[in-house]
């Protein structure tokens, strides 16, 4: 019998490289892959996926007690939290400016500047800043952060169709990356990339957030949309070839499987279940094309990191 040869697909395109962090700050580069995730016989995967840790500018009130005990007092101080996250091995930090939400304090540009400043000086990791996901508040706080972080190439999000012009303009002016978020739909994802390109934002300054469905809560939709985006990019579609970020921790830890301490017996040990829930969501979305996973629990970070070490050894 003739020897079995690896059935290599000849892809016309590849995923764009995207760099976060500059101007004296550490940097991380993701993307650049010319194959499907973890398929090493058909193309180079020059950069391993990166792990971001999510931190918030105010102490979260509704986080699981497992997260609260893991982070302790750091939850009360974003700069301290950032340092601790760096110690736990994050490649970058995802800073949620939650206090700007009209329901959560409605803080504005001044507060955002202060927070950004504190975190920028506390750690030298690459950073992503996310607003409260209320378009006009996002514009207010992200433009302020953009100015404070000028030249340090941070990510700014979320950029949606409604506010894309403002976010794109500030990213262009200050040398940042836009996090383009769309609701689990391949055409909307592509459309937003086109809109951002039309207003002059370079394609290598766009990171796609296709919206994460956690395990058991729409994971399969996100999984397939990401696979389709990745395949379209490999087939040569330049407007779907941006790397992707998945907010795994945020989605996983809000579900009752991760929060309930008094669950049915069949759900098993609460801590084990919650950690595995976040880890399995992460690995599923890495397998479908995720380039950055944003995690919450330090133990999940260690576990996913160890797995990526093995994969890219």
């Amino acid at each position: 019998m003739a020897p079995v040869e690896a059935p290599v697909e000849k892809w016309a395109g590849k995923i764009r490289e995207l760099k976060l962090g500059s101007g004296g700050r550490k940097s991380v580069t993701v993307g650049g892959s010319s194959s499907l995730p973890f398929v090493r016989f058909e193309g180079a995967q020059p950069h391993r996926p990166a792990i971001a840790i999510e931190i918030r500018d105010v102490e979260p009130r509704d986080w699981s007690s497992m997260l609260v005990s893991a982070w302790g007092d750091a939850l009360k101080d974003p700069a301290k939290w950032a340092k601790k996250a760096a110690e736990y091995g994050a490649d970058l930090l995802y800073v949620r400016l939650a206090s700007a939400h009209p329901e959560e304090g409605n803080t504005g540009a001044a507060e955002a500047r202060k927070t950004a400043d504190a975190i920028l000086s506390a750690v030298d990791l690459p950073l992503i800043f996310a607003g409260p996901d209320v378009a006009d508040k996002d514009n207010e706080v992200l433009v302020a952060v953009s100015d404070v972080a000028k030249g340090q190439r941070v990510g700014l999000g979320n950029c949606v169709e409604k506010n894309h012009k403002t976010i794109a303009a500030t990213c262009i002016a200050d040398g940042h990356v836009a996090i383009a978020k769309t609701p689990i739909e391949i055409n909307l994802a592509k459309q937003l990339n086109i809109l951002l390109s039309d207003v002059g934002l370079a394609a290598d300054s766009i990171l796609m957030d296709p919206t994460t469905g956690a395990l058991g809560y729409g994971l399969e939709y996100t999984y397939s949309v990401m696979e389709r985006l990745r395949l379209a990019a490999l087939m040569g579609d330049a407007m779907t070839s941006m790397p992707m970020i998945c907010t795994v921790g945020e989605e996983s830890w809000r579900q009752k499987e991760s929060k309930s301490l008094d669950a049915p017996k069949s759900w098993g040990d609460a801590t084990e279940r919650a950690l595995v829930w976040e880890e399995v969501t992460a690995i599923g979305l890495l397998a479908s094309g995720g380039d950055i996973v944003v995690l919450r629990h330090p133990q999940t970070v260690a576990a996913v990191k160890s797995v990526l070490d093995k994969m890219f050894a």
């Binding site: 759900w267 098993g268 040990d269 084990e272 279940r273 399995v280």
Partner: peptide
């Protein structure tokens, strides 16, 4: 085998 792992795996 433990329930806390079986549940997420079966869900996956």
């Amino acid at each position: 085998f433990s329930s806390g792992v079986a549940y997420p795996l079966l869900t996956m």
